[in-house]
Design a protein around this nucleic acid. Structure first.
Lengths: 138, 138
DNA sequence: ATACAGCTTACACTTAGCTCTAGGTCAAGG
DNA sequence: CCTTGACCTAGAGCTAAGTGTAAGCTGTAT
């Protein structure tokens, strides 16, 4: 199951430009070429791309992803650092989720206010003053 | 409870540069000055900053935050669009959380593999081949 | 045979969001 | 009086992550 760059881009929801950029940056290893020099994305490349997208979409910078790729190329003696990087990144994602939830609480409180305020506005009643924060929120 | 720019920056975990940048960009409205021209951040400014940070940290671009500020300055006739923006942003955050959780599942599967692989490596056993993806994962 | 689609490279450009620098003002302390 | 520290503005510079362009090659279809 091989893909041209356009097919790979479509499947991964990336642009052709981005795929070439990732290749240039060394996030993919040793991408094969057909006899006229066009890239061939194999199943392995696609699996690596899945991981790259996963890491990128969870906030890992390209340079760090490249580190992972480099380690992968170095073989089994880098299994531990790769494992550690993923462990740390997992913790990072869990923190991101918690942070988002925390921010959500402020948005929800704002929305409570806007709900009341909109209602008041629509009925020509006096608009309530904006919700206040407790000191520990900033 | 007023703050100098340095105090405000500290409290908000931003740099002075960033605060001036936000002011320049119009994310804050009408920041007061003392008699020698130095910014004074009031409680209201700090509350707005809290919201700005919340929106920014949940992925809202600066330009969109400015739109919100602009609407706020226009008064009550923009209560509805402001409400809608926050509603939409809330949905966006919920989607982000779901996406992170989905990505977490791939990381977890990778970690399962790395666990086994590290164990095998440490005991000089044959390293298992990397976990495979089902087709619908990319 | 020629036009076209799809690929190639090298390299310049863009955008967001800061971040820093230079040069200057101002108030307080020695 | 002079220095120090905290602030000011205008504007340049930086980083990350692409995005786009120009010029050129290749394989297929008319």
């Amino acid at each position: 199951m091989n893909y041209t760059i356009a097919q790979a881009a479509k499947k991964m929801n990336l642009t052709i430009y981005t795929l070439r950029y990732y290749d240039r940056e060394g996030l993919l290893t040793n991408v094969k070429r057909d006899k006229s020099g066009n890239r061939i994305f194999t199943k392995d490349d696609m699996e690596m791309l899945s991981l790259i997208c996963c890491l990128k979409n969870t906030g890992m910078p390209i340079k760090k992803i490249k580190q992972f790729t480099d380690w992968q190329n170095e073989g089994n003696q880098t299994l531990h650092p790769r494992n550690d990087m993923l462990e740390n990144h997992k913790e990072d994602i869990l923190t991101q989720i918690e942070d988002l939830k925390k921010h959500l609480r402020l948005i929800d409180r704002k929305l409570d206010y806007y709900h009341d305020a909109c209602q008041a506005y629509d009925t020509n009643s006096p608009i309530p003053t904006c919700c206040e924060y407790t000191d520990d929120e900033f």
